[in-house]
């Protein structure tokens, strides 16, 4: 339904020839922008509903009061994915979890999953690569967060937390949490949820347009197979190179995915692209500086090292199975 609209708008109304690079680029831009905005709105809406009933406080409460024998890693990864956060919430969250007596490994799982699997990333992936790639992305993001958190948890890293977090941990009062359920009926919540979903779309709209704009330009003008000579799956260093380049960078997934989509269309293996994407949104220098408040550099180094390594491994794995 969107494709005929894009065709009609670009070829009939704008009068651009479908056979020209400009026609291809503009059509791609119109089609992708509309599709992704609709997807993002729907996904944010669903996540908003889930969040209204399972706020993060409830998760913490649950994790602190139940013995889950490993399932807590899964819960942390899952909720990290579906809870939308402003990046700077990661520090209060981290402290809140640690204070509540939740193990460091589980807390780190949450911290890794939260940016890695997000409503924006899912919408962009779904719009650009389809259901199969999105499922691979979401499942591997969740599993990777769990494994990374588990490994880090086993490394006994508590001594490398910054001093005042250790103090907070000591005073951990198992949270006689006064967490009260909001008793607003569902129908009354709908307007708020709708507004918030729209807010999420509006917040990243500019990034979507920039990302799709660049993607569209490349789509129209970069020749097929252009990148293949540099980053094909036969080059064993393709994945680590993509990941190492991406770790220090941060970009909004809304901007990155459309560009990666074109990379893939022009010959880069999907596994390398997914690994690149994970490294961009999962780890970044701004995040490291934020974590400095709660961790020593040494712990940040170990944290980044383990996650980077796992992203590289999953990149190889995808290239191999896909």
């Amino acid at each position: 339904m969107i494709q005929p609209f894009a065709d009609w708008l670009v070829y009939s109304i704008f009068g651009i020839d479908a056979a020209t690079p400009l026609g291809v680029a503009v059509n791609f831009f119109v089609y992708d922008t509309i599709k992704i905005i609709i997807l993002l709105f729907c996904i944010s809406f669903v996540m908003g509903i889930i969040n209204a009933y399972f706020p993060i406080e409830r998760l913490r409460q649950y994790l602190t009061t139940h013995k889950l024998y490993g399932l807590d890693y899964f819960m942390a990864a899952l909720f990290g994915g579906i809870t939308p956060f402003c990046s700077c919430s990661s520090v209060p969250l981290f402290i809140g979890f640690v204070k509540g007596g939740i193990p460091l490994g589980v807390t780190l799982t949450f911290l890794i999953a939260s940016p890695l699997v997000s409503e924006v990333a899912i919408a962009m992936f779904l719009g650009s690569f389809g259901v199969k790639a999105t499922l691979i992305y979401v499942i591997s993001g969740t599993v990777l967060s769990m494994i990374a958190g588990y490994i880090l948890g086993r490394m006994r890293l508590e001594p490398y937390l910054s001093d005042w977090v250790k103090n907070a941990q000591m005073q951990s009062n198992a949270q006689s949490e006064r967490w009260e359920v909001e008793k607003t009926p569902f129908l009354k919540r709908l307007p708020t949820i709708t507004k918030e979903s729209w807010g999420i779309v509006r917040g990243v709209l500019l990034y979507i347009i920039i990302g799709i704009g660049i993607g569209a330009a490349m789509h129209g003008y970069v020749p097929e197979g252009f990148f293949e000579q540099y980053l094909s799956s036969e080059n064993w260093w393709g994945v680590p190179l993509a990941v190492v380049l991406a770790v220090p960078m941060y970009a909004n997934p809304a901007s990155v995915v459309p560009v990666i989509e074109v990379f893939v269309a022009k010959g880069i293996p999907l596994g390398t692209a997914i690994a690149f994407m994970m490294a961009i949104i999962g780890l970044s220098i701004p995040e490291a500086t934020m974590l400095k408040k709660v961790m020593t550099w040494r712990l940040i180094g170990i944290f980044f090292g383990v996650v980077t390594l796992l992203i590289i491994i999953s990149g190889y794995l995808f290239n191999w199975i896909l």
Binding site: R60, G96, Q175
Partner: peptide
């Protein structure tokens, strides 16, 4: 901030 026991900002 943490003295208010919040998890998200």
């Amino acid at each position: 901030m943490m003295s208010y026991n919040i998890l998200s900002t």
